[in-house]
Design a protein around this nucleic acid. Structure first.
Length: 990
RNA sequence: GCCGAAGUGGUGGAACUGGUAGACACGCCGGACUCAAAAUCCGGUGGAGGUUAUACUUCGUGAGGGUUCGAGUCCCUCCUUCGGUACCA
């Protein structure tokens, strides 16, 4: 009898599978039964494939083979995440060009993957650095650019001084160090390209419901996007530098109505809407109204806007009346892009009495979140002074002309006022009665408007001190720091004025950059209040008896409202919504959804990446490279030693080609793309990897995707998935594809640890090389062992003797094959099975088939292998082995052990290849045992078992049980109760 | 702190919707083969008690409570480990 030796046949079959194209991806059309098995394309490292790759690939390969045998159309592709920093760093160290190095590594990878017996169709191969791939990466960039989803802006970026490159926020560890090298990250201002992924935030959250992913992965995606639904509260600023005279407030501002029209008209001059086409000004129709003794023309457009605005906002038509006489009127008001333009009309007899200010204040109060625009004659010094006091600033000039007398243009100032309203975001409206201060971030955009002259020095000193702090210091600082601005904010809920501080514990890039300080119920605010001796106010309290607020920390528990006026006594969750609704209805708050997600910064100042397909004209404006000029090739001969500048900037060849093509003074973008861009769409290209005409054939992609199984390591999944989903949604919006989630079903594999239980690393000398394992035991053993180690998702230590156990299993399979009696036939099995000597074998193989298929579907390979071992152990004990039974065993084993099963299949005289043979069916009725063992419990404790015919009723089981001494001895009297679960258990209560 | 996952023999791990806990494998012990070893094969193997042996008894799924005829599985509280994340308002 020949011994099991994988070396005898592995090579032979490997070659045969290649020459016969056994795993060729079939043609497909939408709606065909298909299985797209995707493994996250690996980075082709010089170190070769590691055992973790093997685990993921085999976990992809088994379902792929299984589904192929089920007759589905299967695609099992492979590709390379071949751009990126490691290759470049390696090149800098060794002087070997990244391209040469990478191409070499890929060759080794392909050989290893073939050795393991992964059923890859190499026609699907893609690689991030292949010209015919990155051409389309660039094409995608251009589509995003054209759709307004790629933009450039100067931004403080994370800069790693060691790697000399920009890092995405995500690539900075929580302690402020570089993800790759551990160096402390600095901040630097650079012009960077961004993708506007934030536009997709809601879909990226909501569509998670469509996919079958591990809960933890979905949760991570949600956390990363960080959607919180709340509202922004509008706080009026009280900056003592802008002192409004109190007398301005004394007038009662009322709404004007149609009855006032005649009265109002005395301020105006009749005859508005005269046709008076003036070619110089473009005015078509003129409203001639009196304004400060002058008649002014208003364009039709403006009038239209005003009348529309008044229709929608009747309260904006305002007058001030005194003893029935109209003193002033607000007119020509309209809103555009959150800017309110308006005119103030004051009766000539009542100027200088604060009528104008009163009107304005009313408008500001009504529209706290807006910008205001007003035009005023340069020689109307009184008005100018008034506007300045109200916080208006001159932003430009324009002209009015009087009654068509062109020579009499009046020079005007255009003045604008940003209403000094501070927005704070919150989800916790129940605490709104409680803030005792307001904090803004040091980077707050309108800081200058808040800081008073008196506090200017102190504030700028504080901000300087922050700039010297690294992010690390800022984040780990335990003490709260900050400084008073001199201004106050008015709480829209109760009109309380509270001081405004600048402090670095508020982040400029989340929410609005301003936060209300609720020291009673927020620990950070509490710390700050203690430091600056600010009052602490509580807005909720539990009704527990003897409850006291904690003495040295904030009360962060739940409770009922207190100090909240009309809302006192409400449970906080109810109060939260009611207070929010109230403020929103009063225009004191705006519903708002906030995201933690930021736009995707994709520029990298690196060589080994996909060039960004942008050219700059001599004026420096960015243009997308015309599609016919793609790809923008990455030049080979470039000095890529790190200098802090993009290596491509030093390539003359690269820049010269731009001038030749687009003219003198044109320059190319020298940054390359984040490699996450490459990896966000590779799974589309697999389907049509060789297409030179377009990115992919939409019909093919629509037929193959979404993927049916995506195996990807559990650790670095957040960003890749987010970005891939973003691209998919973009493609969907562009009409390129008809689905908007790329990965229907996804699972993760855990780390494989070294035999010592530590992470595999050269440092510990505990690295297991798959090549060695194949050499020692053969590929089938390695595959099955990795699947048998435990659940895919778990981290598992390597155990060499356990691997030998798998080899033992396969040898025993081999030995059993050699014992087969070839005399029996399948027919006998089929028709005479009940009384044949192989009845039990038939039952066992049916049970096995019934088990293994679903186990592959649920990726519980470890139990599938265990069942096969059990089955094989059973066969070993049988005197004779039925050929048909064994053949079906081989079919079931084939996805796991492709080599040995192919060999046995062929020796049994079957046609090549087992991997395209049909998956065996099972007969449910044949899986049933004729008798079952039933556990007998007395009062819930197992006291023995009885053997009865399957399907027996309670009485049969009970009387059988009573024949057992050990059971009967517990049952002295008639049992109180019997609980019987058929074929499983009988519980007797005595 | 928050979110997620998980704690089962000496080890990796099984256990379907609550129904005989420890499948399968490693390791270990004993035996066969061998001059011997390796390899291979056969048998045993959760702890404690108990029997010449078979029985049998009892305790056992991180800890403590609860629901149930019955809990590794469901509920509550807590502990530990791993993964993610954090002045996110």
């Amino acid at each position: 009898m020949n011994k099991f030796n994988p070396k005898d046949f592995e090579d032979k079959w490997r070659k045969k599978w290649a020459t016969e194209e056994t795993y060729k991806t079939p043609e497909i059309k939408k709606g065909d039964e298909k299985f797209y098995s995707l493994y996250s394309y690996p980075y082709p490292s010089g170190a070769g494939l590691h055992v973790g790759h093997v685990e993921g690939m085999v976990a992809n390969d088994i379902p792929a083979r299984y589904n192929r045998m089920l007759g589905k159309k299967v695609m099992m592709p492979m590709g390379w995440d071949s751009f990126g920093l490691p290759a470049e760093n390696y090149a800098i160290k060794t002087g070997i060009h990244p391209k040469d190095n990478t191409d070499e590594a890929i060759k080794a990878f392909i050989e290893q993957i073939n050795n393991i017996g992964i059923s890859v169709d190499w026609n699907t191969e893609v690689g991030a650095h292949y010209e015919n791939y990155y051409k389309w990466t660039q094409w995608i960039f251009i589509q995003l650019f054209n759709a307004g989803l790629a933009y450039k802006k100067k931004a403080p970026v994370n800069w790693c001084p060691k790697d000399q490159t920009v890092l995405a926020n995500e690539q900075v560890e929580s302690d402020g160090t570089c993800e790759r090298c551990g160096t402390e990250v600095e901040q630097k201002d650079l012009e960077q390209w961004f993708f506007k992924i934030t536009d997709f935030a809601d879909r990226l959250v909501d569509d998670l419901d469509k996919v079958d992913w591990p809960d933890s992965t979905k949760a991570q995606q949600r956390d990363w996007i960080g959607r919180s639904i709340g509202a922004e509260i509008l706080w009026k600023l009280n900056n003592p530098d802008y002192k409004n005279k109190k007398e301005n407030q004394k007038y009662i501002v009322e709404l004007a109505n149609t009855d006032d029209a005649e009265e109002i008209s005395f301020i105006r001059v009749s005859g508005w809407l005269e046709n008076n086409i003036n070619e110089k000004t473009g005015v078509t129709k003129e409203f001639l109204g009196e304004f400060h003794d002058q008649k002014i023309p208003i364009s039709k457009d403006k009038i239209q806007k005003q009348s529309n605005y008044i229709k929608e906002n009747p309260e904006s038509n305002l007058i001030i009346r005194e003893n029935g006489k109209i003193l002033g009127w607000l007119g020509l008001m309209f809103e555009e892009d959150n800017v309110i333009s308006f005119g103030v009309y004051v009766h000539p007899d009542h100027r200088g009495r604060g009528v104008g200010s009163a009107l304005m204040n009313y408008v500001f109060e009504k529209n706290p979140s807006h910008k205001f625009k007003i035009e005023v004659s340069k020689n109307n010094t009184r008005a100018i002074e008034l506007y300045k006091r109200q916080g208006f600033e001159e932003v430009g000039e324009s002209k009015w002309f009087i009654e068509g007398r062109e020579e009499n243009f009046i020079p005007l100032y255009v003045m604008e006022k940003e209403c000094f309203v501070i927005h704070t975001f919150t989800t916790r409206f129940d605490t709104i009665p409680g803030p005792t201060f307001l904090v803004i971030a040091p980077e707050y955009e309108h800081l200058d408007k808040i800081v008073t002259a008196e506090n200017k020095d102190a504030v700028s000193k504080y901000i300087d001190s922050i700039k010297n702090k690294t992010d690390l210091d800022r984040q780990t600082a335990k003490e709260k720091t900050g400084v008073f601005t001199g201004s106050y904010a008015v709480n829209p809920f109760n009109n309380e004025e509270i001081p405004i501080y600048v402090a670095d514990y508020v982040l400029a890039n989340y929410g609005t950059g301003a936060v209300m300080g609720m020291p009673g119920h927020d620990q950070r605010d509490y710390d700050f209040a203690k430091k600056f001796d600010l009052p602490i106010k509580y807005t909720l309290q539990p009704k527990d008896e003897g409850f006291e607020f904690p003495k040295d920390k904030a009360f962060e528990g739940e409770g009922y409202q207190i100090n909240s006026g009309e809302f006192n006594g409400l449970w906080w969750e109810e109060a939260k919504d009611k207070i929010m609704d109230k403020l929103i209805s009063e225009d004191k708050a705006i519903k708002k959804v906030n995201y933690r997600l930021r736009d995707w910064l994709l520029s990298r100042q690196r060589y080994w990446g996909c060039p960004i397909p942008v050219i700059y004209d001599p004026e420096g404006n960015a243009h997308a490279v015309p599609e016919e000029d793609l790809p923008v090739l990455l030049p080979y001969n470039v000095d890529f030693s790190p200098t802090g500048e993009s290596p491509l900037a030093k390539s003359e060849e690269f820049q010269k080609s731009a001038e030749e093509k687009y003219g003198k003074g044109w320059r190319r973008e020298v940054d390359t793309m984040d490699t996450f861009v490459d990896s966000s769409w590779y799974f589309f290209r697999h389907v049509d990897a060789k297409n030179d005409e377009k990115i992919f054939d939409s019909e093919k992609v629509n037929a193959w995707l979404p993927t049916d199984l995506y195996m990807i390591g559990a650790e670095h999944i957040v960003l890749h998935l987010m970005y891939s989903r973003f691209f998919t949604k973009f493609f969907f919006d562009q009409g390129l594809i008809d689905f908007d989630e790329p990965f229907y079903r996804m699972r993760h594999m855990g780390l494989i640890l070294g035999p010592d239980g530590r992470k595999m690393s050269k440092r510990w000398g505990n690295v297991i090389n798959p090549n060695d394992e194949i050499d020692k035991y053969g590929a089938d053993t390695l595959r099955i062992y990795e699947m048998f180690m435990g659940p895919l998702i778990d981290a598992k230590p390597w155990n060499d003797s356990a691997e030998k156990g798998v080899l033992r299993f396969l040898s025993k399979v081999w030995d059993n094959f050699n014992r087969i009696q070839t005399t029996d036939s399948r027919e006998e099995v089929k028709f005479e099975i009940r009384n044949s000597k192989f009845e039990i074998q038939e039952r066992e193989i049916n049970k096995l088939i019934k088990y293994v298929g679903p186990a592959i579907d649920t990726l519980s390979f470890n139990t599938a292998v265990a069942k096969m071992m059990e089955f094989n152990n059973f066969l070993t004990k049988e005197k004779e082995i039925n050929k048909s039974v064994f053949e079906r065993f081989m079919l079931v084993l084939a996805p796991f052990a492709p080599y040995v099963t192919e060999e046995i299949w062929s020796q049994m005289g079957n046609e090549f290849s087992i991997h395209n043979a049909k998956w065996p069916e099972f007969d449910e009725s044949l899986t049933k045992e004729s008798s079952v063992t039933i556990a007998i419990q007395i009062n819930g404790k197992v006291r023995g078992t009885v053997e009865v015919d399957a399907g027996s009723n309670e009485d049969v089981v009970y009387s059988a049980a009573m024949k057992e001494q050990n059971i009967a001895k517990y049952v002295e009297n008639e049992p109180k109760k019997k609980i019987y679960i058929q074929d499983r258990i009988l519980n007797i209560i005595v």
